[in-house]
Design a binder for these strands. Sequence first.
DNA 1: CGATCTGTTGGACATCTGCGCAACAGTCTA
DNA 2: TAGACTGTTGCGCAGATGTCCAACAGATCG
Lengths: 224, 224
Amino acid sequence: MPRMSPTERRDAIIEAALTVALRKGFGSTTVRDVAAELGCSSGLIHHYFESMDDVLAAAFDQAAGRELASIEVAMAATDDPIAKLTAFFASYGRGDQDWAFQLWLDAWAEAGRKPALGATSRRINVGWQRLLASAIVAGVDSGTFACPDPDATAWRMLSLLDGLALQIVAHGSVVPREVSVEWSIAATEDELGIARGTLPRLNAVAAAETAAAGVAAVAAVATR
Amino acid sequence: MPRMSPTERRDAIIEAALTVALRKGFGSTTVRDVAAELGCSSGLIHHYFESMDDVLAAAFDQAAGRELASIEVAMAATDDPIAKLTAFFASYGRGDQDWAFQLWLDAWAEAGRKPALGATSRRINVGWQRLLASAIVAGVDSGTFACPDPDATAWRMLSLLDGLALQIVAHGSVVPREVSVEWSIAATEDELGIARGTLPRLNAVAAAETAAAGVAAVAAVATR
DNA sequence: CGATCTGTTGGACATCTGCGCAACAGTCTA
DNA sequence: TAGACTGTTGCGCAGATGTCCAACAGATCG
């Protein structure tokens, strides 16, 4: 393995830890996994990090922080409140992010037991809420939205999204993904006092197609 | 360790596993932990359970299943749809149940890695959804509620509740407990087409008192 | 060119994990 | 009281894990 500068190597380790964690989950990411992913020896990881905990904490910070940052950029790219929220749901509803959400499940579960991880989780979670709330405030100011309490609305949106995503990631297709996104968008429209259908559905066709089957599937699961 | 009948011993193991899991989480509860908690040998655990996964699943099944059963009983005690939902929120909003919800966080996080635990988590989660949905259907039939899709409404109620409870348990008082209960009840009233305030607030005084301070606290946290 | 620095190696070490097994010890029956 | 039944033990196995360390190798400098 070619030599690297300490900064580069540190970043590379975090990157590799993230790659492994996304594939295997936080709980079963080991030093040797990260070393193998990077193609280096296991000793090298401990040359840069005091403990494995530090590696995982840095990896989660990087992953969750990067995702938040990218959504921030996407939402900041426009002044239109509707477009801002559309950008938000576009990032949130992506179907290939199950493992990323699994990281959040792990972080929430461990938050009470691992202070550093808990603090990171809380900080980034609040960051999301602030991001949503500020977009809502912008919409209220421009007269697009009607919302008496943007902070509360942001928390409710986030909680509904998280609660639904949680079911999908933890329990498989108990609730069809497209249906849950549709529910979240519709709830947002109600919260913001705008007509149903105002926020664009990114894959309107697919959502419509799966809507009927989706509800049927829910009923089927529920009757099991 | 004195002899026990198989049923007693099995229950004792489940109880001990539960105690340990509450302290360390499902992810890092080991056979030896449970044995130490019970004061017996590790071999005994495997005499009663095929695998550790089964022990944890049984422990979670016991805790979560017991809670679901008690809510079922409470809701079945009345025919009035409003009273049914009131009973539901009474159980859900209790402030001393953080430890129980922590189990759910652990279960959701581990669901993808421990099949038996995941299946149990899914089954009981769906059980809650069915319970809520049937109460809603009863209310629709009696003309009390107006709800086009009780199954969907039940999932949304549960997801909002879980998402909010998650923030409280994982991140401390990011959202004040009483406020989150109030939000959930209000959202339910909107879903069921009944006037705001129709569902009784169990601790209306406390909720009202903390409401203003609560929103202020949300803002304070958000500005950090 | 030789010396020094430091990124990197690969394995040693102690510990922990789930699990299986042969032996032990209470309890009940004939 | 002798024997059978079975709850219980304590250790061993094989694999995994975090951590540490002496040796190696590539880069830099006098």
